[in-house]
Design a binder for these strands. Structure first.
Lengths: 351, 351
DNA sequence: TTGAAAGCGCTAACAC
DNA sequence: GTGTTAGCGCTTTCAA
């Protein structure tokens, strides 16, 4: 054995690289500086045709896929937008989510989805996970009621679009409609249609309650309700509402002995449930019972009878929200950052 | 005018900082090194109580929210998982997406959602956007049939879970079931129920076609079909299928003059449409017409009659997919990376 | 248990 | 139009 110490090369600190080709590799192959390659890919107008050509070849040769994480870190633009929904199974928000994804994708943005549930419990944790990714925007469809969550959002500096509601003190931007107005409009619609003994079947989430409250109030003001008492029979079921809760809701309403000739349902699914239960009980719609749903889901027109429903243009909300955020990020000013998108009652055959 | 050049301070190149507090700020406030603060937050076990305490206070004081982008870049762990669905409006995938989001969220992962549509056109673009974010895993529920897309996925080195199908040559991991077996099982179920003049109403997407094909074949093998010819009346509608396409599909089937006593619908929504159309035409279910749906959506049990349907456990797929990916990332081996999760026929009253 | 140094892969800010 | 340099905010690696 020799006493000479073995030759140990100075251990160069090397991290494991991710494996794939990087912009440097592309640049080397193309024979240009990394930044030139970057420009060729991101702002092709600012590069000569020669560089463009060679970089493109190099990309093809190396199979380079840009690391958007690194790009986002350097440029402070993540091209990510987060959307928070209480729940996906109540398809009310689907239209919004789809149009959001689509509009964003067309501009190279990606959607990050978060579920908040209908309770405020996980909000904070979810928010940290979202803000931590530094999205270019956050679209809220529900929840975020806690003051802590709101101030966290505000101080993050990330553009926020609240949707699906009108708030007096928006965090930032807002695209919504008035649930109270809807409640009133439906009550008055029933009134004009000659219905008097109106009832309500509603989810117990805040928004449905808000529609329900305005509906009851307006109905009473119009002199509708149970003969004598002016009471508006109501049934509240936990969100998300389903076809099943519609069936059971109607059963409960009927079994309570109330005399009813019209029901406002807080979702089209529930309305469909009511239709099915009514059919099972031999109650004719709209003859004996008129029905208005909420959401105007695709199937509403295909029901028998076709369902009259309150329509809110979820696609428009999605498109606008995406536009708001992209405008903001591009430094453009959003002229009307608080928007009431309204609603309409789509008249079909169930009233 | 003096000829002396004005004193210009050396312009330090400063980027605009994002504004929020960084780990350095936290560390400074806590009086420790940045790395110590990092450890206090990520691996609390490896830090002394004193440091822990002071870092926590500093976090609260500064309102620090970790920049996960930077963390991901440095650690090669994005804690992001991408899911690609053809479409959200056919709620078949909702269960999967919800359980995926939930399982991931419980471990601090976030879901990134991508829509592929039912055509392969946007696949490649979508894939680049996804791979570019270096997610820790990708869950595929449809599409990705092009060889280019598959090889891109493979060479990315990102764990991929294909779901909702059994493939002979999976890209990586797989959690699925056999659409052919389902077709056969439904045909034989109708046969055992004494139905003979069976038909099919199906979406025209690949998977529905695959179920339909096996169903027709099995039905013919069992001697079912139109009297004499053995033909199986079929109607294919574009995906996503809806209640409306169910109504129109039944109408088409009936108006073609076929004699039918059982229909296999490729979605529960279509089955519901068939029910409605049947009711409108005075056709009794299951007396004159038996019905089996696919998806076993929540409303199936609440229909009148309750709908018999093929059930696939989407939640289980979501949970497993999340687990597979997290195991992989943690260096654990996934013992059974190819899994047939099977299906069941939930017997209710429509047959 | 704690810290200093060296990146992760990219782009903003300059200079030419 | 192109290149140089210095980070973005974090964590890995190594050394104490």
């Amino acid at each position: 054995m020799s006493d000479y110490p073995e030759y140990t090369p100075v251990p160069r600190r090397r991290r494991q690289k991710t494996g794939g080709a990087t912009l440097r590799d592309v640049a080397r192959v193309a024979g240009v500086a990394p930044i030139a390659a970057s420009r060729a890919l991101n702002t092709p107008d600012a590069a000569s045709d020669k560089v463009l050509q060679r970089v493109r070849e190099a990309v093809a040769e190396t199979g380079y896929v840009p690391n958007l994480l690194a790009g986002a870190l350097a440029s402070q633009k993540s091209r990510l937008v987060a959307a928070v929904v209480p729940d996906l199974s109540g398809p009310v928000f689907l239209e919004l989510i789809e149009s959001l994804t689509q509009t964003l994708a067309a501009s190279g943005y990606q959607l990050m989805l978060g579920h908040s549930g209908y309770e405020n419990s996980r909000e904070d944790q979810l928010l940290d996970a979202i803000i931590g990714r530094r999205p270019d925007g956050i679209v809220l469809t529900g929840a975020m009621r806690s003051e802590e969550a709101r101030s966290k959002l505000k101080s993050s500096g990330i553009p926020v679009v609240e949707t699906w509601d009108l708030s007096e003190a928006p965090i930032d931007m807002l695209i919504g409609f008035s649930h109270e107005e809807i409640g009133k409009a439906v009550a008055s619609y029933f009134h004009r249609a000659g219905r008097r003994r109106v009832a309500i079947l509603s989810g117990s989430d805040r928004r449905s309650r808000s529609r329900a409250g305005a509906y009851e109030e307006a109905a009473r003001a119009l002199g509708m309700g149970q003969n004598g008492s002016g009471e508006i029979p109501s049934c509240f079921v936990p969100a998300p509402t389903t076809l099943g809760s519609g069936r059971r809701g109607l059963a409960e309403l009927l079994d309570s002995g109330a005399e009813i000739d019209a029901i406002f349902c807080s979702s089209d699914q529930m309305a469909m449930g009511v239709m099915i239960e009514a059919a099972a009980r031999g109650i004719e719609i709209p003859g004996q019972l008129a029905l208005i749903g909420f959401g105007d889901l695709a199937f509403a027109r295909d029901l028998q009878p076709a369902l009259t429903s309150v329509r809110v243009d979820g696609s428009a909300i999605g498109r606008m929200a995406a536009q708001f955020i992209m405008d903001r990020k591009a430094g453009r000013e959003v002229p009307q950052p608080h928007c009431d998108i309204g609603f309409s009652i789509v008249e079909r055959d169930s009233v």
